[in-house]
């Protein structure tokens, strides 16, 4: 198939009018409102159903291991032991969590564990709207029970130097929730 190009006029050749034809779009966009979100200062808030970082509640968890069974890649590690405890004046056999670890570096954030959780409200949930998970060390992405519960007790990264960063002792206190 033969394509007929229009013969260029001499004005196009010498005055570069075609160039300005293309630059029209550039100049038009120059005065349009900016769409960029200036990330470290501003933060695009995710939708309500966004699946971000885990949050875990030790008090609500009944150690039923349903989340670990629901996990498609088996990255939730749970250890449980039985204990006799007094509840409402009667001795009852209760399950007590020893270990609740999530290997977040492998996770695909499908939230099947959250769906499987039978407690109300859920004892594991992913609606924390947090995605700042980058780490200098791969092993830091393996979260144990305390870290899953208390990781968000620090202010979010703002890109600016922290004036009142917590000391090591304060950080440990946050981690253990004040115990011990």
């Amino acid at each position: 198939m033969r394509v007929e190009h229009p013969k260029p006029r001499w004005t196009d050749r010498f005055l570069l009018l075609d160039l300005f034809e293309g630059l029209k779009t550039t100049f038009y966009e120059l005065f349009q409102p900016k769409v960029t979100v200036r990330y470290p200062e501003e933060r695009l808030e995710p939708a309500d159903r966004f699946r971000g970082m885990f949050k875990f509640s030790y008090d609500r968890c009944i150690a039923c291991k349903l989340c670990a069974q629901a996990c498609p890649i088996d990255i939730i590690y749970i250890d449980v032991h039985d204990e006799q405890r007094e509840v409402d004046g009667k001795m009852k056999k209760l399950k007590v969590l020893d270990r609740y670890d999530i290997d977040v570096k492998r996770c695909m954030f499908c939230a099947l564990c959250e769906e499987a959780c039978p407690t109300k409200p859920k004892s594991i949930w992913l609606t924390t709207k947090t995605y700042e998970l980058a780490s200098y060390d791969r092993n830091d992405l393996y979260f144990n029970m305390q870290e899953l519960e208390y990781w968000d007790e620090r202010p979010r990264y703002t890109g600016l130097p922290e004036e009142n960063a917590p000391t090591q002792l304060e950080g440990q206190k946050m981690l253990t929730g004040g115990h011990e």
Binding site: Q168, G171, Q172
Partner: peptide
């Protein structure tokens, strides 16, 4: 110090 994970010392 800028980590979101509290176990790291500030």
């Amino acid at each position: 110090p800028d980590s979101i994970i509290p176990r790291k010392a500030g």
